[in-house]
């Protein structure tokens, strides 16, 4: 398992954004055993970053590495869905996947 590169896009320091940050930190510490890099991007401060990554919804978590690239939107309160998005859940459980 390679190192994870995770980018979390939020719109300002809203409760929703803060919740997403906290949830992500908790999941990473529990599941990724230090093998990750996490970056929080506030699109209000850096709209171009949102433009480049084509972010519409916030919070959006992008798993940039390892491939394939995945997008998880929401405050990450549903841990199962986050694990699916990070390809950490058992195969066969595709319920949370939607093309976007």
């Amino acid at each position: 398992m390679g190192k994870y590169l995770l980018k979390l896009y939020i719109t300002g320091r809203t409760p929703q954004g803060n919740r997403a940050i906290a949830n992500l930190q908790r999941i990473c510490q529990a599941e990724l055993d230090g093998q990750y890099e996490m970056e929080v991007i506030d699109v209000i401060e850096d709209p171009q970053a949102a433009e480049d990554a084509r972010i519409i919804a916030t919070p959006t978590l992008i798993k940039a590495l390892p491939p394939p690239l995945r997008r998880i939107i929401g405050d990450l309160s549903n841990k199962e869905k986050v694990l699916i998005g990070l390809d950490l859940s058992s195969p066969g459980d595709e319920e949370g996947h939607r093309r976007g």
Partner: peptide, 16 residues
């Protein structure tokens, strides 16, 4: 692939 986990808004769209 987009996975939805919890509440979100379209704040980034408005910002863009």
């Amino acid at each position: 692939e987009v996975v939805v986990s919890g509440a979100f808004d379209l704040g980034a769209l408005v910002v863009r």
